[in-house]
Design a protein around this nucleic acid. Structure first.
Lengths: 214, 214
DNA sequence: GCTAATTTAGCACAGCTGTGCTAGGTTGTG
DNA sequence: CACAACCTAGCACAGCTGTGCTAAATTAGC
């Protein structure tokens, strides 16, 4: 037999080639031939590991969110400790900041992810992967808010479901702004906004009916 | 001469064909031939009105945001009156809800817009159009918050710039959720979240330094 | 009815695409 | 050494792409 190839490694290598092309020229340029060229392989070799282009692209997306997921999980572990010394809001903030594209590596990941998300409109498999990633972020939001409640840093009168959705939407919006308008949504500013948002959660909700002057 | 064609109308018709294809099969399917077929014209005819594919797609996006912009402006005029009878927050809410894809027409527009936004990563002209649309939404946010301050429904201690960015990001995130996860982000729920968000603006900001127990 | 401007239809070219397929090279194992 | 398993290289096919270009059809104004 020829050099026995580690299939997982080779597939991962091809996924990375897809990422590079996507970042540089967009996902639509990630043709089988293009990916082969990028990975310095023959197109036949690419098709030996992925019998179809869809399979390749879907694998590339799965690989990406796995990578992102690993980074976030690793970061989350580091921050848990902070919560035990009174700096609860700061710990929560750190957890959430981990989800945003605040440095070059995460920015790159987010840009590629964004390209895949656009593809989700026309590919149900990619849509499903996207949904999973989305649920992961939501869980992180929910978990963070749970901690705030636990440590008395969030008013108990607030519905955690609503606040989770609101926080999640805020994060997604900030991510979009960080990617598209970095001059306006700088990392420092985004951190400040998030800090304000978290601090406000201490205050009990003002439900619409509370104030007749509205 | 043959039937003299209203160029503006024909171009608009072709833009609509692009929209339909984009919604149904994605923007990458909007080939010159495909658009011609969709509009029941020969490809040569399409190229008589748009000498290049890029020109066609860019026009289709411009036409889309013009349409959206007109709808929003028209809706905004209707709501102004409300602000003069004490229902300030409700008026502000109505203005903001106008920006979200809460009915079928706006959902359709938003889905097509989303496809174009994805293209902005690889087309600087489309990126510019997107930026303009983005600024429009931001202006609407800023204007709404200005009104709240004016009528005493937002704490003067809050930085209007920060709150604009926060509101804008929230809206963008909610839009994404409405499109991708309608089962979770229902119109009613989104309206509730926004209502909470607006009501909180009455409360003065709790700056990080205010509370030593954070 | 004729002319000339406007619009349509569609062929042609070069180049790309995904995928099916085969022939060959490489090397671990018997 | 030989066999067989694994991988690579690349040709072939049918079909799509954007764009250049020309010939014809249509009709308003004279």
């Amino acid at each position: 037999m020829p050099v026995r190839i580690d299939h997982a490694e080779r597939r991962s290598l091809l996924a990375q080639a897809v990422w590079r092309i996507t970042l540089r020229d967009g996902l639509r340029e990630a043709s089988v031939r293009g990916v082969a060229r990028e990975a310095e392989l023959a197109t036949g070799s690419v098709r030996y590991f992925f019998s179809t282009q869809d399979e390749l692209l879907r694998f590339a997306m799965r690989e990406l969110i796995d990578k992102i997921g690993r980074r976030i999980t690793a970061g989350a572990e580091l921050r848990i400790a902070d919560a035990h010394e009174g700096r609860v809001v700061e710990a929560a903030l750190a957890l959430l900041l981990e989800l945003l594209p605040l440095d070059e590596e995460r920015r790159t990941e987010a840009l590629i992810y964004q390209a895949f998300v656009a593809e989700a409109a026309n590919d149900s498999v990619i849509a499903e992967i996207r949904r999973e990633a989305d649920d992961g972020v939501r869980q992180q939001c929910l978990h963070t808010l749970d901690s705030l409640v636990e440590f008395g840093c969030m008013a108990a009168s607030r519905e955690i479901e609503s606040e989770t959705e609101r926080l999640h939407a805020l994060l997604d919006g900030l991510t979009a702004h960080l990617l598209a308008r970095p001059e306006r949504a700088s990392p420092a500013r985004v951190e400040g906004l998030l800090r304000i948002h978290l601090h406000e959660l201490r205050v009990p909700v003002r439900y619409p009916g509370d104030d007749p002057s509205i």
